[in-house]
C-alpha cells in the first residue's frame, strides 16, 4: 500500500488515465474530483457494502427459517416490554 500526503489542488495519477484531485479539505471531510474513462467503475465503499449485503439478503429462505425469525422477533418485543 502506498500512502501519500497531498494538499488542496494537488493530484494523484493512477495508471495512465485516472486522475484523483483533492479539491477541498475540511476537518471532517475531503472533497475529491476523479477523472477516469467511463468503463472504470467508481463506487463509494459503503455502496459496495450495501450491494453485498443486499445480495446476501436476497438469497431465498425456507418457510421454517421465516417461522424461526418471526418467533425470534416476537420474543424480542416481549423482552422489551418486560
Amino acid at each position: 500500500m502506498l500512502v501519500i500526503r497531498r494538499k488542496e489542488g494537488e493530484s494523484i495519477l493512477v495508471g495512465e488515465d485516472v486522475e484523483i484531485q483533492v479539491l477541498e479539505i475540511t476537518p471532517s471531510r475531503v472533497k475529491l474530483s476523479i477523472s477516469a474513462p467511463p468503463q472504470v467503475l467508481i463506487l463509494r465503499k459503503e455502496v459496495q457494502q450495501a450491494q453485498l449485503q443486499n445480495l446476501a439478503a436476497a438469497r431465498q429462505v425456507t418457510p421454517e427459517t421465516i417461522a424461526g425469525l418471526v418467533s425470534r422477533l416476537r420474543h424480542h418485543t416481549i423482552s422489551q416490554e418486560k
Binding site: V47, A50, Q51, L52, N54, L55, A58, I66, L69, V70, L73, R74, T77
Partner: peptide, 22 residues
C-alpha cells in the same frame, strides 16, 4: 432500484398476520 438490484423499481410491501412483524 436498490444497490445491486438497480433494475428492480417496483415492490409490493406484504405484511401477513402469520409472519408479522416481518
Amino acid at each position: 432500484g436498490l444497490p445491486a438490484f438497480e433494475r428492480e423499481r417496483r415492490f409490493v410491501a406484504i405484511e401477513q398476520p402469520a409472519t408479522a412483524p416481518i
